[in-house]
Amino acid sequence: MSLFKTLTEKPWERKGVIGGLNPEGAFESPPERVALGFFLTIASVIFSMFGVSYVIRMSLPDWEPLAEPSQLWLNTGLLVISSVLFQWARNTANAGKQKNLMTAFIGGGVFALLFIAGQMLTWEGLQASGFYVASNPANSFFYLLTGLHVAHLLGGLWVWSKSSIRLISGSKPEDVRLSIELCTVYWHFLLIIWLIIFAILSNT
């Protein structure tokens, strides 16, 4: 039923039970997925607010572009691998298979940790070359955006670690399927966010 049709119906003219067991207009997904959808929208709003601030601040005269270290390419690769592994885990779990599930899921998280370590190395490298957080707004935004992205990853890793523990302690694939699916969606989202951040940072 389309949104327009929903909103234009005259509820006082429709009596009786409408719809099946599920409420009409509800998403055909578990509520956790719906909530994650909203959360990802909120996170997108946060990142786009920073994006808008970045563009506005960039137009002010004291902006000196920052030359992004090439290490970011390596880090990006790590995050891509992480996402791919999560997708593999998701596919495995959806197929109800046990084999490789643990490898893929835990591997995905480990690569995310490697990405974070890489990001921290990048920061240290920048600090060592004298690019401090307050040196220039471009630097400030670099630390802010990458830091915020890492903070989101850490939040995801917290859920990942809980699911991993369940997986290690022998939960069946169908029990952790939802967790794995949500983690995977979240990881893909953060990969996309990272690619956007990376594109903005390296093109300005």
Partner: peptide, 21 residues
């Protein structure tokens, strides 16, 4: 709280309770 409210309203309405009701 907010994620709860919107998700509950969307997903946990009882049988027959359309949005316009």
């Amino acid at each position: 709280g907010g994620l709860n409210y919107v998700t509950t309203i969307l997903q946990y309405r009882c049988r027959g309770l359309t949005m316009m009701r």
